[in-house]
Design a protein around this nucleic acid. Structure first.
Length: 310
DNA sequence: GAGCAAAAGTACCGCTTGAG
DNA sequence: CTCAAGCGGTACTTTTGCTC
């Protein structure tokens, strides 16, 4: 092994293959061709005297040696990036950076359009990617190693080396179609229980616990919703409501967004439901990164929440 | 068929050297 | 001292063959 033959670009290639388990996808992420990355991997193999990655049915799997050096290399790359960002600062007008956000489809629906408009004005070279990694991977893996810069939404379990900032408090409303034959203006408890409901339950979000919370409140009152369907995605949900006589209990902002696209009416839920907080979370490692900080501030500014980082 | 690896060719960069 | 030519190294692309 000859460390003098290893340059920073080769380490970036190593990290990209490690993350993606694929030479082709790593190349796409790095903006190179597959063969360039393959070539770079070859030089790395030569320099390190180890195959580093072995082709298997599950992709390019790291060798024991590659696994051993992966952590320190990733740490070093993050350190270099942090050092440069600290030294050079983050210049939104000229920064060419991609930020990855974890958000549910509600987040994409309600937050993303406003965020993209804001960023397009201030930072034309910045790209936003959204990702929906499995919840068990989100905190310990994806956010710690920087695959996900920020998680935005309703999260009830975010402990350990994470920071949290409240963005806004959300409440529930009931939604039905505008010309509903039995529901108009005000919704009585009797009517609410008589109608059948669509339940929005996206996978991998805090909505499951939210729905449990709603059901618990109903149980306290000794009542239960008549559920017609559980829906995993919000895409098209407004059409489902607009084309039927079903009711749906939804976060107020999501309901408003739906009402802007379809003839829907927004009604108060006859039972007082608890409000909940929409927050953004980030890993301690990125707390002082100027880029991450800038993005957090921009998101917070959309909801007037700059002052309360914790 | 998709993806990886290798070969061949090209472009660019930095260094050296020699002429003016 | 300056500048152009030559050379070697590096990184890129396209093409092609191989493996899973």
């Amino acid at each position: 092994m000859n460390p003098n033959r290893i340059d920073l670009n080769l380490l970036k290639v190593f990290d990209a293959i490690l993350r993606t388990r694929s030479v082709t996808v790593a190349a796409l992420n790095l903006g190179l061709t597959q063969s360039t990355v393959s070539n770079a991997l070859n030089r790395l193999r030569d320099a390190m005297g180890d195959p580093l990655f072995v082709r298997t049915s599950e992709g390019m799997m790291p060798t024991t040696w590659a696994e051993e050096i992966a952590g320190p290399i990733r740490e070093s790359l993050a350190q270099i990036r942090a050092t440069l960002e600290h030294k050079l600062g983050f210049d939104p007008a000229h920064a060419e950076r991609t930020f990855t956000l974890f958000m549910t489809d509600v987040g994409q629906f309600v937050l993303l359009p406003r965020l993209l408009r804001l960023i397009a004005q201030e930072s034309p070279l910045v790209q936003i990617h959204t990702d929906q990694v499995p919840p068990f991977r989100l905190r310990e893996s994806a956010m710690e190693n920087g695959d996900v810069d920020l998680a935005v939404g309703y999260f009830h379990e975010f402990e350990g080396p994470f920071h949290r900032q409240r963005l806004f408090t959300e409440t529930f409303v009931c939604v039905s179609r505008a010309g509903h034959p039995r529901v108009a203006g005000k919704l009585s408890m009797e009517q609410f229980l008589k109608e059948r409901h669509l339940v929005y339950l996206p996978p991998g979000s805090g909505h499951a616990s939210m729905e449990a919370l709603i059901d618990a409140v109903f149980q306290e009152h000794g009542v239960q919703r008549a559920t017609m369907a559980r829906v995993a995605h919000c895409l098209g949900l407004w059409t489902l409501i607009a084309d039927s006589d079903y009711l749906a209990v939804l976060p107020r902002r999501l309901a408003s967004a739906f009402a802007a696209m379809a003839p829907l009416q927004i009604l108060e839920v006859p039972i007082p439901l608890p409000s909940f907080e929409i927050t953004q979370h980030w890993h301690e490692r990125f707390h002082h990164h100027p880029g991450n900080r800038w993005l957090r501030n921009r998101i917070a500014s959309l909801f007037g929440a700059q002052e309360s980082e914790a």
